[in-house]
Design a protein around this nucleic acid. Sequence first.
DNA 1: CGATCGTTTGAAAGATATCAAGACTCGTGG
DNA 2: CCACGAGTCTTGATATCTTTCAAACGATCG
Lengths: 261, 261
Amino acid sequence: MVTERLDNMQSRVDTPQQPPTTPRAALATVAWLRAVSGETLDRLTEFAVLHRMPPGSMLFEQAETPAFLLCVVSGSVELFGVRGSDETLIELVGPGDLLLPAAVLNRQPYLLRARVLDEAQLVMIQAEAFRRAVASDHALCLAVLACEAAHFRRQVKSAKNIKLRSAEERVGCYFLKIAEQVLPAASFKLTLEKRLIASQLGMTRETFSRTLAGIGQHGLQVEGDTIHIINIDAARARFQLDPLIDGPEAVQPLAVEATTT
Amino acid sequence: MVTERLDNMQSRVDTPQQPPTTPRAALATVAWLRAVSGETLDRLTEFAVLHRMPPGSMLFEQAETPAFLLCVVSGSVELFGVRGSDETLIELVGPGDLLLPAAVLNRQPYLLRARVLDEAQLVMIQAEAFRRAVASDHALCLAVLACEAAHFRRQVKSAKNIKLRSAEERVGCYFLKIAEQVLPAASFKLTLEKRLIASQLGMTRETFSRTLAGIGQHGLQVEGDTIHIINIDAARARFQLDPLIDGPEAVQPLAVEATTT
DNA sequence: CGATCGTTTGAAAGATATCAAGACTCGTGG
DNA sequence: CCACGAGTCTTGATATCTTTCAAACGATCG
């Protein structure tokens, strides 16, 4: 039995020894900022604060103009598209990720609502300080670009998933993907509420729930929040994972070939 | 009567006096590269080529590893998600935009298939040259970041549109948005094939076609490829545009407050 | 003219959402 | 300790939406 966090958060294995206690120390835990100079990180965190927020905390509302750049140090944050009283989960954000840096950079309103899912530590950096730092520090700019590129590719994958696959296929691939990851194990537990998985996959909880039952016919037996891998080959036959949809999408620092001068 | 290009391509009004004849001149027409030094643009285009491609030309296939960065100078390019024999339009790209720079920067496979829609002029820049230039020129890095940010926000808007609205609402808002733009006019023509609009909006051509008929009840009468604005208030009452979904998303160069030194 | 491609339409099946009710979990306060 | 309330999950019945398959229509182009 293995417990697995979803896709965007394989980095769940992190849990640094000691949780950082200052904004500066928090940023030091972010892998893709490694190439950024200490001075820039100092400048960035000069007026920053490190907050611990309980689950359910609203971080910002759709249409708000960003005052801070938020960086998730630990825990997780859900980003919802909102329309009237309906919400749909657009992205789940985990340790080391920024919350909608595009809106902060462009001084544009947030397109999504952010709410804490698992108790989270967040670094809050003044929006203007962030913009200035990106504008003046090339290494930071490169790092943010890599971060933004990863976010873009995740969105494209999600769009393909929703537009090209049926509800059952989306659910099946979601589970099969986790199954392959934990594979020597015979079962795993969901770490995400079902209503959130359903929303992320673009369907109602009821449809998701029903699909769950039917999926037992394809080698994946669902029992509460644990999934038993009964017949992985049957699952593979029915649900074909596509790396261009289901593959991971980590932040990759820009690599340039050695200059052959 | 007004002819209008869609959303991503309001920049249709451009058509520079003389089409550029060299890669270097072509990049000079791209607005968001204005802050980039001439030397960098020279370096970028040293081994670049400027191609004119007829409609239907395949530019690259899903899963390919990028060899070039493509920049659209004129015309337009469709980006499809592909699964077996199914295609879905994920993004339409017009003059001044880059084709999936995220894949090029990260040396990752393309997630989409690119095909020329309207005859296009394209600058082809060696992928490695592009990466090196971004890594060494801060202004270019900033410009690409702004470009990528705009792309990300477009994807989020599209995801909200598809997950939060019904098929009829998506179609209605699509038309109403154009209607508002051309407003003193009483009608307008579609510049995009209906099958492409349908695909972009996440439905089949048949569903789209049927929805078209029903939409006449809400003040927008469809006749072939021209839409008559019969009753704009009825349309507004039924279809509520949301700037956080339907608003434009142009590339914005990073603006930093004046340094008060 | 015939071929191709995009569009429209019909009829039927299928997928998905909605509404409503019950089961279950979990934390709180009596 | 138990009962309660809130939230989640499941299940059933039903309605709606959407797709599928098929055919016909209309343009465009050699």
